[in-house]
């Protein structure tokens, strides 16, 4: 076939559009930008994580600042959650973490409440003050028991 600048330009646009689509899927939706090596790794141990899963959001004041990296059981049989946070964040070392639920049946996430300490959290630190997930069935069970007693 003969050379044709329009045809080549169309091929170029097609390839460009394809790569833009891949970039949108990867970065904007997939959150590929949150997978950086320099992420601030912090540990938090909970008595009960409920339905918390890796990749759940971590928020400060409702703003997403990171995600849950892994949820596993430690030697004391408590749930050990490692968080991958934005390294530019200057969280005090007495920050507390609690597992909350979006809506009544929504996804679970971790909310961080910054403390007042001057020393910031450094990579590998453990968050001291934690509040585990509330399990709806247990609450209902307690309620039923209490009503039964009265």
């Amino acid at each position: 076939m003969t050379e044709s600048p329009t045809r080549d330009a169309l091929v170029g646009l097609f390839v460009l559009a394809g790569f833009l689509a891949i970039a949108y899927l990867s970065v904007s939706l997939g959150g590929a930008n949150y997978r950086g090596e320099g992420g601030l790794e912090v540990i938090a141990t909970f008595d009960e994580v409920g339905g918390l899963k890796p990749r759940a959001q971590v928020v400060v004041g409702g703003v997403k600042v990171g995600q849950v990296d892994s949820v596993e059981l430690d030697e004391d049989l408590r749930a050990r959650v490692s968080l991958d946070l934005d390294p530019s964040l200057n969280l005090p070392s007495d920050t507390s973490a609690s597992i909350l639920t979006q809506g009544i049946l929504g996804d679970q996430y971790i909310a961080l409440e910054p403390g007042a300490e001057e020393i910031p959290l450094s990579p590998g630190d453990e968050i001291q003050f934690t509040q585990g997930a509330l399990i709806l069935e247990r609450l209902i069970g307690k309620l039923v028991q209490n009503i039964g007693v009265e």
Binding site: I22, L25, S26, L29, G30, G31
Partner: peptide, 16 residues
């Protein structure tokens, strides 16, 4: 909901 449910490694890479 779209952003929260899609993971780069398991979903986007898999799709590619």
């Amino acid at each position: 909901a779209l952003e929260a449910s899609i993971d780069f490694r398991s979903d986007v890479v898999g799709s590619l």
